[in-house]
């Protein structure tokens, strides 16, 4: 059996004032696009930093392609690429030089073709030879991504790689990520754009307050935690109170009574019959698919309530 791309066992990280990770165990398969989601301060960056050897865990273990990051750090690091969350740049050097260095650090003979390829993939070709000081925020972020990938890591960690990158380039980036996956690279990413995670990720983990609260395929999470809704639009506002059977289904009036939204579970006919009986004509009828955003908010809110 080939080793897992990333495996963490009960990873704990305590800082003097906070516990950033409270025992996170995750297994990521080779060739997956895996999205790590969670509110700010959830512990995503801490988890990635431990796996990449930038931070030491208080307890627990982390392995990359079977290499323990503490016991065999050099072997683990050789296969890893990291886009750190914090932008960094060295004003002394140009993007082309920086990519050359980064390739070399990983023990890969620097190749001009490879560097050109990445500069092009991240739309930096025309900035290849200017000082990094002259790059915009989005360009610096893209250079960070190029640096993380230039040595062809087998497992790439992208911590908020699209923050500050505009939509068109974000789409290009995700296409590039898909291409990498097709070549066998495992991708672990965090993002604030949940629709991206939903569209791109094979599996998603939700962490909050340093704890794992869900890991699954997006469609499974949607099925388990998301609720389909049905929405009726009326020709005139419904001013009367809703009948008890609609209230029992969880229906609510919106937009000043001109629309009604109701969760849909299994049988739709009851909702339909009840809505038809309201003193207004239905002019539009629509079902809404659950979104990962909705699931995410529901999951993290549940933790909030428990806390």
């Amino acid at each position: 059996m080939p080793p897992l791309a990333v495996e963490t066992d009960a990873l704990v990280k305590k800082y003097p004032k906070v516990q950033a990770l409270g025992g996170v165990s995750l297994s990521i398969e080779p060739g997956e696009i895996f999205a790590l989601l969670g509110p700010n301060g959830a512990g995503k960056t801490t988890w990635i930093s431990i796996v990449c050897g930038l931070t030491r865990a208080t307890s627990g273990h982390a392995r990359v392609l079977g290499h323990d990051v503490v016991a065999d750090p050099m072997a683990a690091r050789r296969v890893v690429g990291l886009v750190p969350q914090e932008i960094n740049f060295d004003p002394f050097f140009t993007p082309r030089e920086v990519l050359r260095f980064q390739m070399g650090y990983f023990g890969v003979q620097p190749s001009n073709d490879r560097i050109e390829e990445l500069l092009a993939a991240l739309a930096l070709s025309d900035k290849a030879d200017v000082s990094s000081r002259e790059l915009s925020g989005g360009m610096r972020r893209r250079l960070l991504i190029a640096k993380a990938l230039v040595h062809r890591p087998r497992v790439a960690f992208l911590d908020e790689p699209t923050a500050g990158v505009d939509i068109a380039l974000r789409k290009d980036l995700w296409n590039y990520v898909r291409k990498l996956r097709a070549e066998g690279t495992t991708i672990v990413l965090t993002t604030h754009y949940l629709e991206e995670a939903e569209e791109l990720a094979d599996r998603v983990a939700v962490i909050d307050h340093g704890r794992l609260i869900a890991v699954d395929k997006p469609e499974v999470l949607l099925r388990q935690h998301g609720k389909k809704r049905i929405r009726f639009t009326f020709d005139a506002p419904v001013v009367a109170a809703l009948p008890a059977r609609l209230l029992a289904l969880g229906a609510t009036l919106e937009n000043g009574g001109t629309s009604l939204s109701c969760p849909l579970e299994g049988d739709a006919s009851e909702v339909l019959a009840a809505a038809a009986a309201l003193p207004a004509r239905v002019v539009d009828l629509r079902t809404e698919q659950p979104s990962l955003e909705q699931v995410f908010l529901a999951l993290t809110a549940r933790v909030e309530r428990r806390a």
Binding site: R77, V80, G81, F89, Q102
Partner: peptide, 17 residues
Amino acid sequence: IAKMQGTIVDLLVAPLS
């Protein structure tokens, strides 16, 4: 400077002993 501008990360993630 590498510590201050954060570029030290580039070395710390690399397989340099």
